[in-house]
Each structure stands twice: as C-alpha cells, then as structure tokens.
Design a protein around this nucleic acid. Structure first.
Length: 273
DNA sequence: CTCCAGGCTTACG
DNA sequence: CGTAAGCATGGA
C-alpha cells in the first residue's frame, strides 16, 4: 500500500469515461494490469494504491507524467470545449495493453457498453488465468489462437465478432502480424497496418493507436463523437455521409492539434456521460 | 414484437 | 463513386 501525489488527476473520470472496460468500483476501484491486481482510491490529490505492481507501473498506466497544463492549453481552442476541460478536469488517457485494447474494441462493434464489458469478462473467465478468487488475466494471443469460433461465440457471447478475434490472435502467434511493432511506427503508418486486420477499420485502429500506442494525435470518431462534433462544429463538414467520419477526424486533428486525442476524450464523455 | 447499440465488409445502383 | 443490408446478442 502506497500513496502517489498527483495533480490534475481524477480517478473516477479516468476509469468511468468508457476507455477501459474491466475496472469495477466498490469501496475502491479494482482492476487488473500486467497480470496483477490494482486496488486504487483517491483522497484529494493523493492516489492510494494497493498492488504488487510498483509505483512506476502505475505512473505509466495512468499517464501521470503527462503535462496536463500544457495539454489543456493546447486543446483549449474555443468556448465550446473550454467548459468541458473544467467539468471533467483530471480525466487522463490510460496507457493500455495493445492486445487487450484491440480485442476490446473489436468487441465494441455495433454494441453497447454493458455488453462489451460482459463479453470481455467472459473472455477472461473462460480463457484467462485466475490470479485471485474472481479475478482473471486477459488471455494472450497464444491461448485464443487455439479456441474454436463456436466455442468463443457460445461461451463469450461475442456473436459475429468471434472469427475476427480468433483470426488476429492466430496471425500474431504465427508472426504474420507484428502488433507490438506498431509502437515504433508513425500514427499514419500504424493506422494503415492496423486496418489490414480483418474486421478492423478506421475507428478501432484509432482507438488502439490512442489508448495503447501513445498516438495522441489520433481522434477516433464513433457515433457519440459524430453527435457532439456535428453539434459543435457541424458547419465545417460538407461531404457525403459516408465520408463524414473521416472528414471529422481530419478536421479535429488540424483544429485541436497534436493532443487532439485528449480533446476526443472530453468531448466523448460530454455526449456519453 | 421491433429497434438499436463505441463498426466493418460486402453487395448492389 | 455512393448508400444499405447483414452480421449476433440482449435490453428497452
């Protein structure tokens, strides 16, 4: 048990804004990171951690080294977003594991948050390791590569998404796809690579780049972001419906700049929460 | 019962 | 090029 001093950090906003799916809140927040359990709560500016993981891992996971003052200044472009930066102040991006992140967002296709959480929970309970009663690790690609589509479909309730998950697990195991190598690519190159995966398009690719590969210039556009971007900046998008999402993403990258991924989180929470 | 939810692929004008 | 059905699943 140890304490970490923070500033511009809000644990509740960070864990309940929809970027991660496995954390649960009771008297404290409980989650599994790097195969270990973290129990966390916040008292004022202090983050109280109960975990076998050391402070450095926590710092890295919650991105506590991000200079929020600088980031807020950078993305605070107008009177539309300014109040959101105050309202949800302390919301941080989380540095997720790429594999868990990728599978999670494949599960998010044509789905809702409770069902996404449920699917991921099933995947862990069926195929992960139980590290403490009721708490499971996220299964590695090696494990999922051995699973049959119907087995996953029936046990994890992932529906038509099962073949895509198993396919990319298999490709990673056979070195046909270098997922972890994407961290060394640029945003554009990484995006192109991720979109080669069957069942992964621009939105999922952008989520993985933002949440797992440090590409803060990524701006995932889903239905919620569509809503609020149309409401706030609609006059800037004139193209046909089919190209609108890409148009919005391009606009946002230009408009909010290199930290636009952070802007995306605050905008998302405003429409989602 | 029908409709829809953090999309993507494929099929058809 | 452009739009739209279909894909499983469960809750409203």
């Amino acid at each position: 048990m140890y304490r970490i001093n923070t500033n511009d950090f809000n644990l509740d906003h960070t864990l309940s804004c929809g970027q991660v799916f496995r954390w649960e809140k009771n008297d404290c927040w409980t989650g599994i990171v790097n195969g270990a359990i973290i129990r966390a709560k916040q008292e004022g500016a202090e983050l109280i951690i109960d975990s076998s993981l050391d402070e450095k891992v926590i710092q890295d996971y919650f991105r506590l080294d991000d200079d929020m003052e600088k980031i807020y200044t950078s993305i605070n472009r107008d009177e539309k977003i300014a109040p959101l930066l105050w309202k949800y102040r302390g919301l941080r991006l989380i540095r997720q594991d790429p594999w868990e992140c990728l599978v999670s967002y494949i599960c998010s296709k044509a789905n809702n948050i409770p069902k996404i959480k449920n699917s991921i929970k099933h995947i862990c309970e069926c195929f992960g390791n139980e590290i403490e009663t009721g708490y499971y690790t996220f299964p590695s690609p090696d494990v999922l590569a051995e699973v049959k589509p119907n087995e996953m479909k029936q046990q994890c309730r992932v529906g038509f998404r099962a073949p895509d998950i198993l396919n990319i697990a298999d490709m990673i195991v056979n070195h046909e796809f270098d997922l972890y190598g994407i961290k060394d690519l640029s945003y554009r190159e990484g995006r192109k690579e991720l979109m080669k995966i069957k069942g992964v398009g621009s939105k999922i690719a952008d989520c993985v780049l933002l949440f797992a590969f440090d590409k803060l210039e990524s701006f995932p556009v889903d239905t919620h972001i569509m809503q609020i971007m149309n409401r706030f900046y609609g006059e800037n998008f004139k193209g046909p419906k089919s190209k609108k999402k890409e148009e919005i993403a391009e606009f946002a990258r230009e408009y909010f700049g290199k930290y636009c991924g952070y802007a995306q989180e605050y905008l998302f929470l405003e429409d989602f929460g």
